[in-house]
């Protein structure tokens, strides 16, 4: 047992294969799982993707992004438009129900396109603001989140403020768990490489990183774009799991929820962040009837965490958010 878990750590591709295998087994042999539990697992998997991808930006690279839910929205709306309008119009003779083979086969490219459009929007937002020294990113991402929300509220072809309903229920355990495994794998594989140490070098000391030949802007934009891509995929999975999306579902509070997962998971520890995402998902289910107090609970958790493990929580965040950190090279 110990031996095999060690082998998984040493051979990430084996871990990936095992994870995907579990996703397939869940899908094929999971008929006994009741619909409610299935939905909780889907939400947990989607939250894992969101949290682990934001962790690359916030935890590994030290960039404070406040619009992860907006990238999720871009992926959700893009993929919902594809399955709801584009595909049935282009291929009307195929059957477009949630479990039909056509929707299952086309779901992969649909999710990936959602991810790419989200990545593109990440590039447009992150490109210019990450080039600047200082902490513009928090402000720009806060603004971008609002812009996306307002745009969606006023876009009638996607239902405006009422949102889009009747989305194809194509998300199942295979896609959600499979993508969660793939995301965790990608993040760990990325960071555990010479290339990936660049993210952490930029987080620890941008000036020293640049002096060692690292193109820090490029590193930050790369982390941001990869993060946005996976958030977009998560958005697609989410839209096709709940069958209904609205602009309010992707507001700042949703971004904040993902930030809480990343902080609780220990900023820069992909596995910890994935576990935190699962725990928060369960917490949300328990608090379902008290959802108006959710933010209060999150705030309390964060405060408790800061008291218990102040160094880990505060250092990476405050060094970014507060002015006067060592900036001039000396």
């Amino acid at each position: 047992m110990f031996h095999s878990s060690k082998a998984l750590i040493r051979n990430p591709r084996l871990a990936l294969a095992v994870g995907i295998g579990i996703a397939v087994l869940l899908q094929l042999g999971g008929g006994w799982i009741d619909p409610y539990t299935t939905q909780v697992v889907l939400f947990a998997a989607i939250n894992v993707i969101l949290a682990v991808s934001l962790n690359l930006v916030m935890g590994e690279t030290g960039q404070f992004s406040l619009c992860h839910a907006a990238f999720m929205a871009v992926g959700a709306y893009t993929s919902a438009l594809l399955t709801g309008k584009a595909l049935p119009t282009l291929l009307p003779h195929l059957s477009w129900t949630g479990s039909s083979w056509a929707s299952q086969v086309f779901f992969l490219p649909v999710l990936l396109i959602g991810g790419f459009v989200a990545a593109l929007s990440g590039f447009i937002v992150g490109g210019p603001s990450l080039r600047l020294r200082g902490d513009y990113l928090a402000m720009v991402t806060l603004g971008f989140g609002e812009i996306i929300r307002v745009l969606l509220q006023n876009a009638n072809f996607v239902g405006g403020a009422r949102g889009m309903e009747g989305i194809l229920p194509a998300t199942n355990l295979f896609w959600a768990v499979g993508f969660a495994v793939l995301t965790v794998y990608t993040m760990i594989a990325l960071v555990r490489s010479t290339y990936g140490r660049g993210f952490q070098a930029v987080r620890d000391d941008e000036i020293a990183a640049a002096a060692m030949g690292i193109d820090t802007t490029r590193v930050k934009v790369t982390a941001f774009v990869i993060g946005a891509f996976f958030a977009g995929v998560a958005g697609g999975l989410y839209a096709h799991a709940v069958e209904f999306i609205s602009p309010e579902g992707f507001n700042f509070l949703r971004s904040f929820e993902i930030i809480v997962m990343v902080i609780l998971g220990g900023l820069g520890r992909p596995v910890g962040v994935a576990i935190a995402a699962i725990l928060i998902t369960l917490l949300n289910e328990w608090l379902r009837d008290l959802s108006q107090y959710r933010m209060v609970v999150y705030a309390l958790i964060i405060i408790l965490f800061m008291i218990l493990r102040p160094a880990e929580t505060l250092r990476p965040l405050l060094s970014r958010v507060l002015p006067g950190r060592k900036s001039a090279a000396s």
């Binding site: 290339y195 140490r197 952490q200 070098a201 987080r203 990183a209 690292i214 820069g268």
Partner: peptide
């Protein structure tokens, strides 16, 4: 740097490894 600027959260090996990224 006059005020040492190592990558504090990385171990000694990884500090040197960052120099190969370029």
């Amino acid at each position: 740097f006059q005020n040492i600027r190592l990558f504090g959260s990385l171990d000694v090996r990884m500090n040197v490894r960052t120099s190969f990224i370029a």
